[in-house]
Design a protein around this nucleic acid. Structure first.
Length: 885
RNA sequence: GGGCGUUUAGCUCAGCUGGGAGAGCGCUACCCUUACAAGGUAGAUGUCGGGGGUUCGAUCCCCUCAACGCCCACCA
């Protein structure tokens, strides 16, 4: 029969991608719509930084979120997915500043604040659009009308509103405090932005003279260049060696300044020499010691990290150079008594990778103590849940030990701090609207604080501001009341405290409700060897390359299949290729069904008309639907993918389609119609189940199944108890086992596919016997069985046949003369050995009194059943061996 | 220094409340069989990191050791 098929032999992802994304946009399919469920479902996209191109991590983000969003939408939730981009303060400012330097040899100060920020805006317009285009390529079904940039008007209002609120409560305060100073950025950064790295350095032992005595102290330090800022020497007050010196004065070498010797518990007797130089201006611990002892604070660094006039001998030098110079001076003076290699952690700027200098400066801080407490409670009492649960430990670790958050940055790109200072009086106030006059003296000579807020300050308010808060009109338009709180937040574990914790604190502070109910933490994408993808290693994989090469669906399926509760996802492009093949397999399965679609009815026939194959495939499909729903509800994308993958290959293509050929190419018109209907029905369910993960090919196939509707709007497949049929599933499993057995025999004697065979089956399973008999035509297609007999096991077995046994059926293929008898006998003996060893294991259990006494009834029945089955197989194998006698 | 995690087939990983070890990729053999060679059929492969314990029974629970990874922590 000549079958017409105008579908291409391989699936073309690119055209489907463009076509359907456009269609979905035109039909506004991404906008929230009331579904059969009353609830809404909200997902907030972690806004990518505007600093550049999307990487695989974003692709994973996009895939897991889009799959979830499409799934929930199909389940009938009124679903909203909010996109956006982040201004990423430090990151963006330095990228653009570098670019301008490269092109024009000008830094930001040459341009001035206004011009410089204007340039960043221009740059943002360009890259922001590029990011959106990339996301669209991936198929993200977010509502673009909700798209928000962190520096938009509403987020800016949110930032000011929140700032003023906390300022007035006294939770935001300004203080001279020791902060992490990044000399490259020339700004303070928060603790969370500091990365500690092991650095090779030295332990220097320095000799300090004691005033008025002939003794000295040896002090160990890794930073001799900071001696100029020392304001004390500390020993442990219980240290017998030194406690008599407390209260005396020590003399700092080089500068010959006198500083008090103090006793402080912080000093570790074991560490170093047990004597500590105290530098409150440039060391976090020393700052605390200084506070306890009311020591003066000296600052010997400029904002660019060079030394200032406080350290005349090394003025203008950078720390490394200065250290060498100080070492030289100390040696000259004979004050350096030792130098040992020493590896120790040193803070580096997350963005600049520069060594962080602790420095005292006036900064804005946010006291997070009570907010952190609330955020911890919300997770403890289940108002917010982490998936996988283990990540709550990371969250707790951070929030149970809250530190005040340094929120001011000496940058230009960001939300300027809404605090105003009067030049005419001493007034200082926060305002969420541009003030007209000084709140106190009413004069108009005032200025705004030049600093901007930490990027994460606006990110923390993201769940609120994207829904319009605090602007009443915007909140109404964006339906804040319907969509807040968000349902699920999906993100990587690397920003649990940067972002998740901050959103929790800030969201709960404003609304007293956690901003989301679930947080699903996905893996970090690494290369196939488990290394982080990075520019320096050159092992990054560009999602767009993958989409061009294999299609968005294949990439998405790969990422989803690799995402469960794991923390690493080692991505090998070979896997994408493998799933590209799966996508193509699905396409070709559809190509098979396609020519018969005109025969298919829209509704399933009455159950009485269903063939056993139909009952079976629908039961299997139903099981898969149930399990996939469960998997998706738990964010087990890996399970969901593997379930449908297995079903499509192992059940649907290998058996149901193969078994359908005999009917569809046959003469029985009625049977053809029923089978075509069934195939169409199955296909609709399959593409529905797959759509959240591979939206493009499924929508394409759907368009051939139902031209009037779109799959994106269909209802997801739910479990239907009326389709359950364990009996038929068992029978089909046996059928498959026997058929595979016959093929196995064929393969073992090297028969060509064209060689027809005669098969003799022996079984006492009467239902199976009946079904095998009815399936004789199918066996011709499946294993080229020309003729055969089916008998019960009390019949005589044929002599010298190729044979094998399942626990229920013996298969004999008479091939006398064609087979190697020894080989066949060995095969059976090998099977016998295995079966006997299996049997002995279960038999041992049954003979074990303790097992029989303690094991639960169902386990015992199971073991009994196994023993019986093995026994039956052993009997069968013996029959076979006998047939060679 | 503290915490978390990982260790299962050559590779990447799954194994729920303990009851005969799984998937994908790769590999081997044979096949261009009328949806698909981006395919089909059949097949091989594991002292479930080491040691101890609990149990009738441990990949799974407990203890311990080891290796690797990540996070946090004040640069004496």
């Amino acid at each position: 029969m000549e079958i017409q098929n105008d579908l291409p032999k391989t699936f073309d992802p690119q055209s489907a991608q463009d076509k359907w994304y456009q269609k979905w946009m035109e039909t506004k399919s991404f906008k929230p719509k009331k579904g059969k469920k009353k609830e809404t479902f909200t997902v907030l996209m972690p806004p990518p930084n505007v600093t550049g191109k999307l990487h695989m991590g974003h692709a994973l983000d996009a895939t897991t979120q889009d799959a979830l969003v499409r799934y929930k939408r199909m389940k009938g939730f009124e679903t909203l997915w909010i996109p956006g981009t982040d201004h990423a303060g430090i990151s963006t400012q330095s990228v653009v500043e570098k670019l301008i330097w490269k092109q024009e040899k000008k830094n930001r100060h040459d341009l001035g604040r206004e011009e410089f920020t204007k340039r960043i805006w221009e740059w943002k317009e360009q890259y922001g659009t590029e990011i959106v285009n990339q996301q669209k390529k991936m198929g993200v079904s977010c509502d673009w009308d909700y798209s928000t940039f962190t520096l938009d008007e509403v987020p800016n209002k949110a930032v000011k509103k929140f700032f003023v609120m906390l300022f007035n409560e006294g939770l935001i305060y300004q203080s001279n405090y020791i902060v992490n100073w990044d000399p490259t950025l020339q700004s303070a950064i928060s603790d969370a932005e500091v990365e500690h790295k092991e650095v090779k350095g030295h332990f220097y032992d320095l000799r300090y003279k004691i005033k008025g005595e002939d003794t000295e102290l040896i002090i160990a330090t890794t930073r001799p260049e900071t001696i100029f800022a020392d304001t004390a020497v500390a020993v442990n007050p219980t240290d017998e060696r030194f406690k008599h010196l407390i209260g005396k004065m020590a003399i700092i070498p080089i500068c010959n300044r006198e500083v008090p010797i103090i006793g402080d518990e912080h000093v570790d007797i074991e560490k170093g020499t047990g004597c500590l130089k105290v530098t409150p201006g440039h060391d976090f611990n020393d700052f605390e010691i200084g506070k306890r002892h009311k020591l003066p604070i000296l600052n010997i660094l400029n904002t660019n990290g060079t030394f200032n006039e406080g350290a005349p001998e090394i003025k203008g030098m950078k720390p490394k150079e200065a250290r060498a110079e100080v070492e030289r001076l100390l040696t000259e003076l004979g004050a350096l008594v030792g130098k040992k290699d020493h590896v120790h952690p040193v803070g580096h700027g997350e963005r600049s990778d520069d060594i962080i200098e602790p420095m005292v400066s006036k900064q804005w801080f946010l006291n997070t103590t009570s907010m952190a407490e609330e955020s911890v409670k919300a997770v403890e009492n289940g108002d917010m849940t982490f998936y996988p649960k283990g990540w709550e430990n990371t969250y707790f670790a951070w929030l149970r030990n809250p530190k005040d958050w340094c929120i001011s940055r000496q940058l230009w790109w960001g939300h300027q701090i809404p605090v105003y200072y009067c030049r005419s009086c001493d007034a200082k106030w926060a305002a969420d609207e541009d003030p007209k006059a000084c709140v106190k003296c009413k004069k108009t000579d005032f200025f705004q604080d030049p600093d901007v807020l930490d990027t994460w300050f606006s990110s923390g308010l993201w769940p609120l501001s994207t829904l319009g808060w605090p602007d009443k009109k915007a909140m109404k338009e964006k339906r804040f009341d319907d969509f807040y709180p968000n349902s699920t937040l999906i993100t990587g574990f690397d920003i649990i405290f940067f972002w998740v914790a901050r959103m929790m604190m800030m969201g709960m502070k404003v609304t007293e409700t956690p901003p989301f109910k679930h947080v699903y933490i996905h893996a970090i994408v690494r290369d196939k060897q488990g290394r982080k993808m990075s520019k320096s290693l050159g092992n990054g994989i560009d999602p767009l390359d993958m989409i061009n090469q294999y299609g968005a669906d294949a990439m998405r399926f790969t990422l989803a299949a690799g995402s469960g509760y794991n923390r690493d996802l080692n991505l090998d492009t070979e896997r994408i290729e493998g799933y590209r093949n799966f996508v193509n397999k699905l396409w070709n399965a559809f190509r098979f069904v396609y020519p018969f679609l005109d025969k298919a009815k829209n509704d399933l026939p009455a159950k009485s008309e269903w063939h056993l194959h139909d009952k079976w495939i629908l039961a299997e499909l139903n099981t898969v639907a149930r399990d996939m729903n469960e998997a998706m509800d738990l964010y087990r994308y890996d399970d969901a993918c593997s379930l449908i993958y297995q079903f499509v290959y192992e059940k649907f293509c290998s058996w149901y389609i193969e078994l359908s050929k005999n009917i569809l190419y046959g003469e029985d018109e009625k049977a053809k119609i029923i089978r075509a209907t069934m195939l169409k029905y199955c296909f609709k369910k399959i593409v529905t189940l797959l759509h959240p993960v591979v939206p493009f090919i499924t929508e394409e196939i759907w368009s051939h199944l139902e031209s009037k509707t779109m799959l994106i709007n269909q209802e997801y497949v739910e479990f239907d108890s009326s389709l359950e049929n364990a009996e038929v599933q068992e029978l089909m499993n046996k059928f498959i086992e026997v058929t595979t057995g016959i093929r196995n025999i064929r393969s073992s004697v090297n028969l060509k596919p064209k060689d027809e065979i005669d098969a003799k089956l022996f079984t006492d399973d009467r239902r199976l016997a009946k079904f095998m008999y009815e399936s004789r035509h199918f066996l011709k297609d499946l294993a080229n069985v020309k003729s055969g007999t089916i008998r019960s096991k009390n019949h005589k077995r044929p002599k010298k046949s190729a044979s094998m046994a399942t626990v229920h059926t013996e298969i004999f293929v008479p091939l006398e003369g064609l087979i190697d008898i020894n080989e066949q006998v060995n095969r059976i003996k090998k099977d016998m050995d295995k079966t006997q060893s299996d049997y002995q294991k279960v038999e041992a259990k049954l003979n074990n009194e303790n097992f029989m006494r303690n094991a639960p009834e169902e386990v015992k029945t199971e073991v009994h059943e196994k023993a019986r089955a093995f026994q039956e197989k052993i009997t069968s194998l013996n029959e076979m061996l006998n047939s060679f006698q």
